[in-house]
Design a protein around this nucleic acid. Structure first.
Length: 481
RNA sequence: CGAGGUGUAGCGCAGUUGGUAGCGCGCAUGGUUAGGGACCAUGAGGCCGCGAGUUCGAGUCUCGCCACUUCGACCA
């Protein structure tokens, strides 16, 4: 009964009327995370952390294929390091937490909790790089970083978050810039193949650039409320940090040169992207590749019918042996409760097995992405379910892509832009390149430039959406998280 | 840091004109149930955000503080 909904403790807010509440409800009630005792911090509960571990494994596999090795650098960085790169200090100083005391003793040199590791890695790279033979150097670390943000939201913005930061050094500018592009491609591949998440990729404007970079490239994912989520960035750092940390090498021609660098990162924010790109009125909908539980077997009426319990166990084993991450939910609860429980948690496939199924020699398989129920023959159902998982991943990507395509609106005027943004869309616009216009759009409509459009041809034939001057770029503007 | 809002059981809330606290869900125990959030019975669980004040008496009135939260600004 609809008017009886409130009685369910795990009822989540309506996705259409209260998106923000819906989001936090999903995070908390599907047991991905909880709030920590310190404001702005978030606790990963086992279910949420399991998703992160799967993302890590998939990402690591791809990084290694691109010649990247994992390493680990300290969390505490001398405050002085941060000061060496002018833009970097300015960008990060307001949100950096500082360690000033140990016991009662004030530290003579203050330490900061890393907001990102360019500086400490730069410091180490200067020791490790002395010849062109030491290049390229491509290291990655999985770590936590601390940024004391004013307002926070689970996964999207927390005072401490988990991420991966890759730091590379090359002999030439071309190689370093190519690395930033290459890794952007890897991120796009992870989004598509692992998260079933279509993204827009491209260069970011000066305003949106990383503090200390020459150029920043980003991948933007569209959430169901039409807002954009910056889901990964790669930076071409040029010689900026090399000069600040004295990363020099002796080149083939016998001269000392500064190394050219790139850095790139994706974070636990990706989990937020999954929630907001795929979730629905029933809750979370996990892409099969990163679903900690890919299929759940729900026996129905097992208490009365031992044959059901027995067969459910057999189906569970068959799936497990076939390499599916499967769970058998034989708790003493009603089937309806279990259905809702696992749907809220986003389990891609539910396998129902009751007396009726048993008689027919089938299991009833319900897919989370479409809600569609199909009867599969019990014998060999594990094979059919495995291919169903692949189909679900493809379908989720397809559905999200269609959503994106229908929510990108080309705009020529500020009025059109406002209307499109208010309607929950990204806007595809031409822009003169002036910061003033970006600021004006932000002020008027709370939208920011996201990434440059992949197609920059014919730009000169158009006018800036804001000031009407000749356009220099084609770029997406959207409201963002 | 600017503008609103809210603090009462684990969660969501009610609490009239001041009289020492109630409801739903959840939790525990027992039983009956089971194909879309089962039902009955019994039970446990509260410094009413904190501190002053008014009063015979404050969850309720006054003042101060604190915390959380929504919308801005700042950011992955």
């Amino acid at each position: 009964m609809a008017d009886n909904k409130d009685r369910f403790v795990n009822q989540i807010a309506d996705i259409n009327t209260d998106y923000t509440k819906w989001y936090t409800d999903v995070c908390l009630k599907s047991e991905l995370c909880d709030y920590g005792p310190v404001k702005g911090t978030m606790v990963f509960r086992p279910y949420g952390y399991a998703i992160w571990e799967l993302i890590q494994a998939e990402a690591d596999k791809r990084f290694k294929a691109h010649g990247v090795k994992n390493a680990y650098f300290p969390m505490l960085i001398p405050q002085a390091f941060l000061m060496r790169e002018a833009e970097h200090v300015e960008g990060f100083a307001p949100e950096v937490a500082t360690v000033t005391h140990v016991g009662d003793t004030e530290l003579s040199e203050k330490l900061v909790l890393r907001p990102t590791s360019e500086t400490i890695i730069g410091n180490m790279y200067s020791k490790w790089i002395s010849s062109y033979r030491d290049l390229p150097l491509k290291l990655n670390q999985w770590a936590n970083v601390v940024r004391w943000e004013k307002t926070t939201r689970p996964f999207l913005r927390t005072s401490e978050f988990l991420w991966q930061e890759g730091h590379t050094a090359f002999a030439t500018a071309e190689e370093a810039e190519a690395d930033a592009m290459e890794m952007l491609g890897v991120y796009e591949e992870i989004a598509k193949d692992v998260l079933s998440l279509p993204v827009l990729t491209g260069r970011k404007s000066e305003k949106e650039k990383f503090a200390g970079a020459v150029a920043t490239f980003g991948m933007e994912a569209m959430m169901k409320d039409g807002k954009s989520l910056q889901s990964g960035t790669t930076h071409y750092l040029g010689e900026n940090f090399a000069k600040a940390f004295d990363i020099k090498f002796l080149d083939k021609d016998g001269t000392h040169k500064y190394a050219y660098q790139a850095s790139w990162g994706i974070s636990t924010r990706l989990i937020g992207a999954i929630i907001m790109a795929h979730g629905d009125e029933r809750g979370l909908c996990l892409p099969p590749v990163v679903a900690p539980v890919q299929a759940v077997v729900v026996p129905i009426g097992a208490g009365k019918n031992p044959a059901v319990a027995e067969k459910a166990e057999a189906v569970y084993s068959a799936l497990k042996n076939a390499g599916v991450r499967v769970e058998l939910d034989d708790r003493d609860l009603s089937p309806g409760f279990k259905f809702n429980h696992h749907e809220l948690r986003g389990v891609p496939v539910r396998v129902e097995l009751g007396g009726r199924d048993l008689e027919a020699g089938v299991v009833t398989v319900c897919r989370r992405d479409s809600g569609e129920k199909t009867a599969f023959k019990i014998d060999g159902c594990e094979t059919a379910i495995k291919s169903l998982l692949v189909e679900i991943a493809d379908n989720m990507y397809k559905k999200a892509s269609e959503f994106n395509a229908s929510h990108i609106v080309a705009v020529k005027t500020m009025d059109e832009m406002e209307k499109a943004l208010d309607g929950g869309n990204f806007t595809d616009a031409y822009w003169c390149g002036d910061r003033a216009c970006e600021d004006k759009i932000k002020q008027a409509y709370a939208a920011t430039s996201r990434v440059f459009h992949a197609d920059q041809s014919h730009v000169g034939e158009h006018k800036c959406v804001c000031c009407g001057k000749k356009a220099k770029h084609r770029i997406y503007f959207a409201r963002a998280y």
